[in-house]
Design a protein around this nucleic acid. Sequence first.
RNA 1: GCCCGGAUGGCGGAAUCGGCAGACGCGUCGGACUCAAAAUCCGAUUCCCUCGCGGGAGUGAGGGUUCGACCCCCUCUCCGGGCACCA
Length: 855
Amino acid sequence: MGRCYPFKEIEAKWQKIWKELGTFRAPDGDNRPKYYVLDMFPYPSGAGLHIGHPEGYTASDILARYRRACGYNVLHPMGWDAFGLPAEQHALQTGISPKANTGQNVERFRSQIQRMGFAIDWEREISTIDENYYRWTQWIFLQLFKHGLAFVDERPVWWCPELKAVLANEEVINGRSERGNHPVERRQLRQWVLRITAYADRLLEGLERLDWPDSTKRQQRAWIGRSEGVEIEFAVEDSVEKVTVYTTRADTLMGVTYLVLAPEHPLVEKITLPAYAEAVANYRHETAKKGDLERTDLAKGKTGVPIGARGIHPLTGEKISIWLADYVLPTYGTGAVMAVPAHDGRDYEFAQKFHLPIRMVIGPQKGSPELPFCDAGVLCNSGAGLDGLDSKAAKDVIVKRLEGKNLGRMAVKYKLRDWLFSRQRYWGEPIPIVWVSKEDYGAISQMENSPFREFLPEEPIFFEESGLRSYAIPLPSSQLPLVLPVVDDYRPSDSGESPLSRAKGWVNVEIHGPTGEIRPATGQTGCGWFPARRETNTMPQWAGSCWYHLRYLSPRCTAAAVDPTAEAYWRCPDFYIGGAEHAVLHLLYARFWHQFLYDIGTVTTAEPYPKLFHQGIILGEDGSKMSKSRGNVVNPDRVIDDHGADALRLYEMFLGPLEAMKPWDSQGIIGITRFLQRVWRWFLEESGARSPRFRAEFEESAAIQHILHSSIKKVREDIENLRFNTAISQLMVLLNHLQEQPAAGTGTGLIFLQLLAPFAPHIAEEIWQRMDQEGSIMERPFPNYDEEKISTEVVTVVVQVNGRLRGELRIASDTEREKVLRLARADRRIEPHLSEREIVKEIYVPNRLVNFVVH
RNA sequence: GCCCGGAUGGCGGAAUCGGCAGACGCGUCGGACUCAAAAUCCGAUUCCCUCGCGGGAGUGAGGGUUCGACCCCCUCUCCGGGCACCA
């Protein structure tokens, strides 16, 4: 290492000063306009900060510091998404409690983040595992419960034998667990479910008004998967039952040649003919064993069995066979489809395999098609009133006919499923519910002043187990937080029960109806005391992150999840930045909770994140994803040790566009280090004192004023558009020009420092001080540019002949067209290209370009 | 399979209302300083022909529109991401 500026000392020095002075504290309510910048808070893993974390944080920090300098009251907070499976697995391996382990990880993350010198208001730090935080997560859950949006259901769920845990749909990828890539299987378990589907339309429509990346909106739309179609009833021959199918292609109704039910369809038992019962039972059994991986594996081809019963076509009365096939999913639509093999790829494949009839009803193809025609078209073979209509018109006619017979109606379906909200784990928020008998539920719900009625829903929530019904009683506010009990065994049970179920003293309680008190079981009930069992499932990791953006507004508030006064001022984040991997999970769940909180009056904004940005991924030096196994992981601590936090900040932003995926280059950071050293040496002498080059009264040349003011403009615009790489390059260009001058105005130097400050705050503060400036550079308004200084009197106009560059002219700006063309024609370099040729056309783009078209 | 996004020097990347391609930085080469090295500073650096002046080619490939295309249109290749029997 050569002569470096003393980044170690000055970075520690300014971080200390900022902390002591509370420079970045964001006061509630203020005359200034507010600006709320939010980072996706990290999961504090045992591995410590990754080089990718500071990328997003630096970006938001630059924006925060810039907005501050532009006169905004900026809120830039940080916290910890601290519940999660890794801490629990670590506990199983080491015996160290998740709480202790997570605490250590948080310490490390905090100190690593603080070393970056971010303008964070640390007094607002939050953690999802704090009792005073999850108390309100529980409160929101109870509100959902009260409003009928949280319920229990015995349902097939993804069970991972390896993790011994139930996984949400989103945590299962191609039949394997997202975390750990273990195989998963179906199991029937009692689960808590949140009715996110009730918000499907609002979640969809709300997207229109959001300033989000298109790809993320697209993903959410696809996830919600709204489709408009028709439900059609097919009577079953010799039966009172009917098969209801859902289709988006009612126009192909005349091409239906058979029906298919999902193997799980409840009608199967009722309508299967005895002769087919055994084969059907076998097929259903086979399907149940399959994971969705096998079931959805297209390569394996279609399977299915007939059930003997026949359906009756609602318009033609034709009798068609009914089949069971696992290509029909029980969880979508009605779990039954009408098969139109001529116009659907899947039906076609199935029909081919089982030699079922194929009837074309969308023309104009002739004969039996080689391939199904799946687009819209013009109807044929469909009879009077339909043939010749296009698909759209035909749908209308067919729906009208069905409605006339009361055999069909328009219907809207979604791919979105309700959110499976319980986990059989220890390290999560306890669900604040106790279970009581039917009689006791009746008694408690009748007690007029019982606190247990605070969150009681209109419809009771219950489940049945070995013939006994248990009823859900919500804990009252006075019992919150429901604290996670200390246990010594974090293993889940093989039966799918949470480790909490082992804490018998915690699980078995008695509740006092009149007062809302809860005590450990004594066996002495009566006098308003009822025996109860606590819910032992915990919430998924997504819960805490659904509303953290609100808790920052009033992190210590004990009276409410969000203090209404603070909420009225800060509202919601003006800018939200984080990884694209959260496009559908966190970002959809958080929108759901926020919309719900809006409905119950907790917040005054309809959407949580009006503007969202995804930073790209930083790859290893070899261009592949950083991973321990590849040995290409860059440790931010090392980089700060070697080059300083300012250099790391600057370099991460200089690598390329913020949203791009870009490889780290340990050579490249040298360029940034050199730049910072040149800055240091331009301002300061060897001794560290301010350089004598600076003059208080100094008239800069027009050229310097031009580059200075256009740099101010570019830096401002680039920050506002998150183009930090080009902003930094402009600062380099500016310094290159300034360095060529023997002297400089003090004001020019100070402007340079102010432009640099959001990116490299420590060095900017230090030089600011050594330039004898009072106070923090952060307190000064961001420089403005003078448009007049940017406009130039002389411009370069390039001259082309037939579009090929042949020369250029230096002329006064806004010279009239004829004069420019005359000068161009006479130019020494242009003339030879024009001589003896006819000029067909002359193009002049003012102040930019001349093009002669010659024959 | 379907839907997005991308492809620019040795490398990361600039430049898109259609108007000088390669800003800025890395690397490399040459020079200054030095006993020497490091550091620093100065210069060169898309490729080809040329001592030079200059000329030719060039933004993944091929075609098109235009006075003019990295930019717009069509076809294709490769890379990245998302969805994946959703009827």
